[in-house]
Each structure stands twice: as structure tokens, then as C-alpha cells.
Amino acid sequence: MVATVVHGAGIWPLLAAADEIRLKNGDVITGKVVRKFNEKVVFNTSYAGDIQVTWSEIESIKTDEPLAITLTDRTNLKTTLDSYENGKAMIKLVQLDEEGEEEREHEEKEISLSDLLYINPTPELSGVGVNWSGRINLGGSVTQGNTDTTTVRLDGESIARTLNHRLTVGAVVNRATNNGQNTQFNNRSSIKLDRFISNKWYVYANNTLENDRFRDIKLRTTTGVGSGYQVFERPGLNLFVEGGLNYVSVNYYEAEKESYPGARWALKYDQRVFGGSTQFFHEHEVLLGLDSASNALAFTKTGLRFPIVNNFNASIQYNLDWAGQPADGRKHTDSALIFNLGYVWQ
């Protein structure tokens, strides 16, 4: 497909059918509509790849093929768009068969462009279906000779997102041996359910289970509720902050069991950098004991993911776990510099 820009009244012939956006300044852009979100239209062109066009600067829009759209009243349609006058468009409601193929067109309807909320929205925006995303990473090494060592690290996260809910499940496993003796043996799993009460605000319930033989933790359970704010949630940029109350219970291998109420603060951030080819990410979670300031826990993870091919990537990250009151004979801080190979889906 050849994309063309038309300035003023000058028209360059198109070599293939294309979608068309006419701007208020008279320019016409041809190519392919990818999606609309956050008052921006992503438009694919042959000369500049994907470009973003501000929705309020668009005078008319026309598409050759049916697109999934969501109106401001939350109606979801499959239709072509055909603007015939400023700020308005005619939509053709398309009937689909069981395989999702176009069967026939029925009634036409006029809408204002200001009523068009999304084009090709994801399930969490349209409210139709579930958007599954996630990742799994594997790292390790084997050394034989004067020293026989083996290290294995496996971690993963899966997120199910709908319009009003987000379920996040994660787990990490670390194993290491040196000459047949365990030198690292820990696991951590978590589950969190978010219920959005507005576009940005949500309430959540979470639970975390942790085991670490070398920190004397047989089982640490953290359960809580709270609220969060989704600052950004779009391709290439995500950020939320949240806080709430938790109850922490710890069974030790040697020390006496303890439990206490706590306050929780967490942040999760990722962003595409270096032209979108690399992802920077940072997460942290802090638990403060309400009975004693020394009952404090902190977990952080910061790193970069680099694409390899298709959905495979490599990553480097720095993890830090800190305990204000560790078991007797244990240190406050555990840190690790980790290299992984991973697979992502979305």
C-alpha cells in the first residue's frame, strides 16, 4: 500500500485503496487506521510507519474496511467510517457470521465524531472479552570442575484484564547448589484482584506467600486490601500506585511465629525506551508494621528487557529484599543481579 499526504487542494493519485484522514488545516493523510485511544489516532503510513494524530484536529475520517469501535455510550460496533461533512460520520452496522467474517451490512447511522470513543479497542477498554498478557523468564548456570555449582531461576506473571477487573498472578522460584549442598532455596507467589470504580481509581485485595529456607522463613503470608490509582495504562507506558492495609503472619523454621498488622505501599512502572525496542521496568512494595517500626519489609525490582526475535527477549534486572527485623543470625538485605531469557505474550 502506498500512503499519500495531500496539502491543500493538491491531490496525489493513490496506487491502492487506503483509509483517509482529513485534517482541519486541509492536509489529507492516507494509510491505515490502527486504533484510537486517549484522544489520539494511531495511523500507519508507508513513509513514516505509525504516527499519532490528535483526534480534535481531524475534520473527517474514512475507512475501507470495518473496524471495531466503541461509542461514548459504551456501544460496541463493527463498522466502516465514512465522514461526509465536518465532525460527522456515517457508520454501517456489519453483520458477522460465527467465524467473525462479514456476512452483510444492515442499517446505516449518523454519529458525531466526538461520540467515537475508541477504534479497535482492547477488551479492557471495550468491555468485550478478556485481554490476557504475561511473561515467563528463565535463568541459570551450571559449573563443573573444581567447583560444581548449579543455579536456576524461574519467574512469571499473568494478567487478565477486563473493563472493570484486573487479575494478576505471579510466582518466582530460586534454586542454587554448590558441591551438592543447597545454597539458595526460596519461592514467592502472589495474587491480586483489582476492581475499577472509575477509569483511574480501583480497589484491590491481595495475598502473597513466601518461603526462604536461608532466611529462616518457613511461610510468610501477607493478606490485605486497599486502593490504587492507574496513572497510565496504554501501549508503551504503564504506571500505577496503590496503598492499603495488610496482615502479616510468619512461621519460622527456628524462631517463634509472629504476626502483625501493617500498612502497604506499592508502585509498578514500565515504559518503552530507545525508540520502543527496549522496555524499562521498576516495581517496589513496602510493608510497614503498625505495631513496631522495626517490622518493615521492602521488595524492589528494576531492569531492562531487550527484544530478541518475535516474543522472545533477554533481560537484566536488580532485585533487593530488605527486612527491618530479620530472624536471628540473618542479614537485613538480600540482593541479586539477574540475567534472564524470557517470553512475553499480550
Score class of each variant (00 low, 15 high):
66 P>C: 04
180 G>K: 05
294 S>R: 14
19 D>Q: 02
296 A>Y: 07
282 H>W: 07
296 A>S: 14
218 K>N: 15
163 L>M: 13
333 T>V: 14
291 D>K: 13
235 P>Q: 05
53 V>A: 04
296 A>I: 11
33 V>L: 08
297 L>T: 09
238 N>L: 04
128 V>D: 13
52 Q>S: 13
84 Y>L: 09
252 Y>E: 00
106 H>I: 15
137 N>E: 14
148 D>N: 15
346 Q>G: 15
264 R>D: 06
215 R>Q: 10
109 K>V: 13
200 K>S: 15
222 T>V: 11
264 R>E: 08
282 H>K: 01
208 T>I: 12
48 A>D: 06
62 K>Y: 09
298 A>E: 12
204 Y>R: 01
127 G>D: 04
346 Q>Y: 12
76 N>Q: 08
108 E>W: 11
37 F>W: 10
197 I>P: 05
300 T>Q: 12
210 E>G: 02
103 E>N: 11
144 Q>G: 12
136 I>N: 06
324 G>Q: 02
202 Y>Q: 01
198 S>D: 07
305 R>G: 06
25 N>Y: 02
19 D>T: 02
128 V>F: 12
42 V>C: 04
335 S>C: 01
43 F>C: 03
206 N>I: 03
12 W>D: 15
251 N>G: 07
137 N>F: 04
253 Y>R: 07
208 T>W: 01
301 K>G: 04
268 K>H: 14
188 R>L: 10
260 Y>A: 03
203 V>M: 09
259 S>K: 10
270 D>P: 01
334 D>L: 03
78 K>E: 14
219 L>E: 05
164 N>G: 08
44 N>A: 15
119 I>Q: 04
111 I>D: 07
46 S>P: 00
56 S>K: 15
69 I>Q: 02
337 L>Y: 08
22 R>C: 10
321 D>R: 11
98 E>L: 11
140 G>Q: 05
182 N>F: 13
215 R>S: 04
107 E>N: 14
90 M>Q: 15
244 G>A: 05
317 Q>P: 00
58 I>Y: 05
196 F>D: 03
9 A>P: 10
166 R>N: 07
321 D>W: 04
36 K>A: 11
49 G>M: 00
22 R>Y: 07
25 N>R: 08
273 V>L: 10
177 T>L: 07
284 H>M: 13
282 H>T: 02
276 G>Y: 05
325 Q>M: 09
107 E>P: 09
331 K>A: 12
103 E>V: 09
299 F>S: 13
192 K>N: 05
264 R>I: 03
68 A>K: 15
82 D>F: 11
1 M>K: 12
55 W>H: 06
276 G>I: 02
262 G>F: 01
66 P>A: 05
340 N>D: 14
157 E>A: 11
42 V>Y: 09
339 F>H: 06
192 K>I: 07
82 D>V: 07
289 G>C: 02
80 T>P: 05
181 Q>T: 15
5 V>G: 02
224 G>I: 00
249 S>Y: 09
52 Q>M: 09
84 Y>V: 12
58 I>G: 02
295 N>L: 07
62 K>F: 07
260 Y>N: 03
79 T>N: 04
247 Y>K: 04
230 Q>V: 03
121 P>F: 05
69 I>N: 03
332 H>L: 07
87 G>P: 03
161 R>P: 06
115 D>H: 06
216 D>Y: 06
281 F>N: 05
165 H>N: 14
